[in-house]
Amino acid sequence: MSHRNLPSDDELIPKLLENDETAYRQVVSAYHGMMIYIARSIAGDAIADEVAQEAWVAVLKALPNFERRSSLKTWIMRIVCNTAKSRLRHESRTVSIEDSLNESGDMISPTRFDERGHWSSPPSIWHAETPDSLLASTELQTCIDRALKELPPLQRTIVSLRDIQGMDMELICKIFEVSESNARVLLHRARSRLREAIDKYQRNQD
């Protein structure tokens, strides 16, 4: 994100309220890319641009009532997150944290273990086992991309922001208004599903 030179919230907010174009240009330049990224993760490629644009208009309308209980950045990201979730709800797709947590939670199928909890079907040996070798194969990269797309929206968004973009877990929790423990459950499930997808691909190569 290119917001290293962004003025502080104390400086920016009054200017935004005065409709200062330079201030708007600065925040759009700093945050729009991440907003598109979040919108895409939650709602998909097709409507990401539209969602981000809708979120900016919502920011403009809500700014006079912004109570500054969080930073401007967190507040803006929360608006894009809620806009994307509401678009998904219109399409009757699952987005609530409760629904996401209720989805099947086993990291690995229980049938892979015996009654004492030891592996009865241990993890297979991977031909490509380093991060670089995993990404060196175009097919494997496609497999990872597909597995990411197939994750439930909140799992996909949290793993994308945390593990791909390296966003701080605390900020993720604030944006999604979830507890850290719930965010971790979703992150762990997402990672496990991605590992399983790579494992399945590598087993099929044998």
């Binding site: 991977w126 995993l134 990672r191 790579i198 494992d199």
Partner: peptide, 10 residues
Amino acid sequence: QLRATIRALG
């Protein structure tokens, strides 16, 4: 394998 998956995502 889980570590490699996470690092590959990074």
